[in-house]
Design a protein around this nucleic acid. Structure first.
Lengths: 285, 285
DNA sequence: GATATTTGTTGCGTAAAATGATATATATGC
DNA sequence: GCATATATATCATTTTACGCAACAAATATC
């Protein structure tokens, strides 16, 4: 039995799906299957009841799950304890953020952190920012960068990095639209996410049914389409600051303005007691 | 980190000597050295302060030792729990006994145990019976076969297998000695151990200084020398029962007779709660 | 004080174990 | 009944672990 097997077991016990669990653990499904099998051989009991369609914990599996969680917690605890003993921070911390964020905030933050704690290895995963909170809550990542939702889930901690206005953008070549014809203007919006919800509400309060030209995943794609003159988009301004297309774009002066994005760090509150996470966290004063 | 590394670490922490610790763990010293090194790398701290002459636990090592013991205890606990869940006993149990014992009692006991619990693997180590209790107390073995000492150490459990008279033996060819000349008779005795202490006391009570011809390690060697006519020896009768030389030997009728050997199982009391050890233990009614 | 001995570590070649890609078997859904 | 999904078996490859022997450093021995 080793720590890795325990983590894999927990992942499978939570996901109840070899494919997804193996993805989280960064191994192939076959490796996970064998790892679980090995564990079962070692313990002499089946931990999962599985056929080719379903995976379920056995009674023994449930018992072992609580053991695994405890054991992993204690392992983390002793590692933290010994880390304090050694004086210097070291180990591994996992981060999740969007590609946009990795271009903008991340560089400065990481550079500083790296300088202060050179022996801490950072595992960075990028992806859809909408998944950020879910990944934190699931314990898949230690820290994520994202926009603060209106309501924070219980146990979730947020620390502001900066405000970024949510702005309407149009191509520089396009003539300025008058404020009255919002129903006519082709809009290019996020498929989902906080920005989309804000815009939907904005239109609702205005009493206008927007003409949605395109629903796009990713702020960069919105900038591209707007730059090409397809319509008006809404993105956090931080995206423009790092966009190679920003000089082809102008920001519309829209009233009322949308609320600012609050971009910041997410982490589980209970993980803030970990020296590594805490060091990262406290870096932002 | 895996269970094996933890055991190796504990062994080194107890022995404070790579050679001896590696022997207990059944690996080469180099493997142990690398294993410890790996642990230290993983934790980012030194666990031992060591040069080519001394090994000592660091402060971090002491902290980790308590963790390791706890962690190992919990691992055993969950394994036992899951074993009860599964209904059938399985796993591994380690035994220690002398070569003599392995010829005599062990066969029947093991055959029966194997029949009742075929999925339990038995690791058998043989060696000097005088080490049996020490190995049990050190936790190196689950169960040992040996002779009950006058006083049992605290925490040590003993279960009688059978009595075996401690007998004086001589070669069949030698003439019977009269009872008066014990001081003249060449004695062949164990170097150490319970039998030796009993004989020493026997002579002391008789007020005779024995003439010790040879001090030998191992009952088989005593039988050999006696059989060749070098003198009179003292061994538990069970040894004769399994000796190919027994027909060349006769048992002397000595008064007062020595107390019987109480041959039986040793185990740590706290290990009796383990299903495996308990099953072995309870086999002897 | 020179030599021998003890003992932890390291280099190297081999053996074992783990892994990923692919194939397979089997269950489910339409 | 065919298409899909999914856990597992197989095989080739890579990674890891191990033991042996050499080494280095410290102590013991005379």
């Amino acid at each position: 039995m080793d720590i890795r097997s325990l983590k894999q077991f927990i992942s499978l016990a939570v996901n109840l799906h070899f494919g997804r669990a193996s993805e989280v653990s960064h191994v192939s499904p076959s490796a996970l299957s064998r790892s679980i099998r090995r564990l079962e051989d070692e313990l002499g009991v089946s931990l999962f009841e599985r056929n080719n369609r379903n995976v379920a914990l056995t009674r023994a599996g449930k018992l072992f799950l609580t053991y695994a969680r405890d054991s992993l917690g204690q392992w983390d605890a002793i590692r933290n304890e010994l880390m304090e003993e050694s004086g210097e921070l070291h180990g591994e911390i996992s981060m999740y953020c969007s590609v946009t964020a990795s271009y903008s905030f991340l560089f400065d933050i990481l550079a500083r952190f790296r300088n202060d704690h050179p022996r801490v290895e950072i595992k960075l995963h990028t992806g859809d920012p909408e998944d950020a909170i879910a990944r934190i809550l699931a314990g898949d990542e230690d820290i994520a960068i994202g926009a603060r939702p209106v309501r924070l889930q219980a146990g979730l901690a947020f620390r502001l990095i900066e405000f970024s206005p949510l702005v309407f953008i149009a191509s520089k070549d396009q003539p300025q639209q008058s404020a009255e014809n919002w129903a006519e203007i082709p809009m290019i919006l996020s498929e989902r996410g906080l920005a989309r919800r804000r815009v939907d509400e904005w239109f609702r309060e205005l009493g206008v049914q927007p003409r949605i030209y395109a629903q796009v995943a990713g702020n960069e794609a919105i900038v591209s389409m707007v730059s090409l003159g397809f319509g008006v988009g809404v993105v956090p301004r931080i995206v423009l600051d790092n966009s190679p297309l920003s000089n082809t774009i102008r920001i519309l002066d829209v009233k009322p303005a949308l609320d600012d994005y609050e971009v910041g760090l997410f982490a589980l509150e209970k993980k803030l007691s970990s020296p590594l996470v805490n060091a990262f966290w406290s870096q932002l004063k």
